[in-house]
Design a protein around this nucleic acid. Structure first.
Lengths: 298, 298
DNA sequence: ATAATAGTGTCTTTCAGACAGTATAGT
DNA sequence: ACTATACTGTCTGAAAGACACTATTAT
């Protein structure tokens, strides 16, 4: 970048400096990426007329070795010395899911000193959103067991404590992951401190059942981000197939936001984000519904 | 966490496993933190009646050694093996500014392979917002020169290219940093790709004058985040003194959003975020204005 | 008196929330 | 005919945007 021949105080040029640079002076942490792969799947219908319900799913891997042997962890792995963070994340994603062109964004970097019992590990988490209709989870090479868990995070308690010149709010979120015979859970305590001047938000994992490392906290963070972003971006469409009905789209909003929406209002709100097609979904014992697709020109 | 005596396939217990764990199997990247310390300062008045104008400032350090010797960089440094990312960021912040209780949040982790010519370095950036009235930048210990630069980022060109089944949008942002006799700049190209299915956003530094490393890109990212967050959080108050007038608050919004706001509407919008006091600012050749403070109960 | 800012009132348009109504397939 | 869903219309109230008006100080 700086092609100059400038010298530093010791009279050394940049070329010489770089040749003699020793990055091993201090001990380095290890760096990993963790993937949060979300998708939406359908539960089977209860009767021929009813629509099928949708659920939010997260991909987890069963740990085959220490530490946390037998517990479930986010897919992920070490960042190679010759690959960027994003390349590492994409590589991990491809190792688990077979398709390309998946939406992915960086979430957060977790750097507590003792978050991994093996050694000092800093992990950057990435969230990926996939359309389950085009998805296939790869055969488990390394006898690695991968499974989709239904996820939900619910606020179960909130307390506000007044302190000198400010206050502290504690929010307790119960995270649940379920899959056929597996039931994992975690309790995350989110603390917002206002000291009369500035805010500080902290997340603490106060209980973790069957979820390895601090991954319960990471999952909770990801769900929060997903909830926020669905409100002001077109991020949902990454979870949808190319063609979908308005009701299907609304269902996805509802499971992510964890609340019911009014049909008429929902349609008005997202009208500009979609384009109608001439196709209809003629399926069950009721009126067929028009298929829509994403409107990228908005 | 898992106090069990489970053994893995090789018949090894967790205790033995951890004792024999060797984290040096693969070469590790170095990890640093970079601080983006923003504040708002006043330019002197033009006449006795006029209000002073406000400017957004960013703290930069002049590089005394290779690489990028003589150019300006964000304050930052290596993460110690026994400190968390956040502790490292707080330590760097304290080395530059003397006061505690500063608002700080993690922004993003930058992990391109060749972003630093010395060695492979992954950097996590943190944004800090400080109230300039209580601020003092520390004396420069290491003959390190620290300086506040006026920052601005402007969208100067936007082009949309239609491609097979989607489009690409290029946005060019011109970043300017100015301080007395220094004039730094960078051009950042933000590319949004829509391939008919998912979006991808990339940032590329296409020009950098006087700004070291990829810091131009990081600064641009931070300004975007600040602009977004000011709209839906109370983050601004970290840039304000305890007591302020409505006009002062509006000025801070205006310099961050880089657009003018209508007084009456602005006051209505933030009315619930502030509480009026009985104090007035009696200063210049015009009507005194009431002082407000932040309303933390909102 | 004047210049500059402080502060308020109100009109219009847009949007969110609530609810009620009509339409249409599959059995 | 019936059931479950598809789809539309409209009322209300809140909020955003635009603009005009009045109030108050230091010089």
């Amino acid at each position: 970048m700086d092609g100059s021949n400038k010298i530093n105080k010791k009279g050394i040029t940049e070329e010489q400096f770089l040749k003699n640079y020793n990055s091993e002076k201090y001990e380095k942490p290890s760096v990993t990426v963790d993937m949060l792969v979300f998708t939406v799947m359908e539960e089977k219908k209860k009767n021929y007329r009813k629509l099928s319900e949708k659920v939010l799913k997260l991909l987890m891997i069963k740990r085959a070795d220490h530490p946390f042997i037998g517990e479930w962890a986010l897919p992920g792995g070490f960042v190679g010395i010759e690959e960027s963070l994003e390349e590492a994340a994409l590589r991990e994603l491809k190792e688990e899911t077979s398709i390309d062109g998946i939406y992915m964004e960086q979430l957060y970097s977790w750097g507590d000193v003792h978050r991994d019992p093996r050694t000092r590990i800093i992990s950057t988490s990435y969230m990926a959103l996939v359309d389950s209709t085009t998805l296939s989870v790869k055969a488990n090479d390394d006898a690695e067991e991968a499974k989709w868990f239904t996820v939900s995070s619910k606020l179960i308690e909130e307390q506000k404590i007044l302190i000198q010149g400010g206050y502290i709010v504690h929010k307790y979120f119960k995270l649940s992951l379920t899959a056929d015979n597996e039931n994992l859970s975690a309790m995350v305590k989110k603390t917002i401190t206002y000291n009369g001047k500035t805010f500080k938000t902290e997340r603490e994992l106060i209980e973790s059942k069957g979820i390895a490392f601090d991954h319960g906290k990471i999952i909770d963070y990801a769900i929060e981000r997903l909830r926020n972003k669905i409100e002001y971006t077109g991020i949902v469409f990454n979870l949808m197939p190319q063609f979908f009905t308005m009701t299907e789209l609304q269902q996805v909003y509802e499971i992510i936001l964890d609340k019911e929406l009014l049909k008429a209002n929902f349609r008005r709100k997202i009208a500009d984000l979609v384009v109608e097609t001439n196709e209809y979904k003629k399926d069950a014992g009721h009126r067929p519904s028009k298929l829509f697709k994403y409107n990228p020109n908005y």
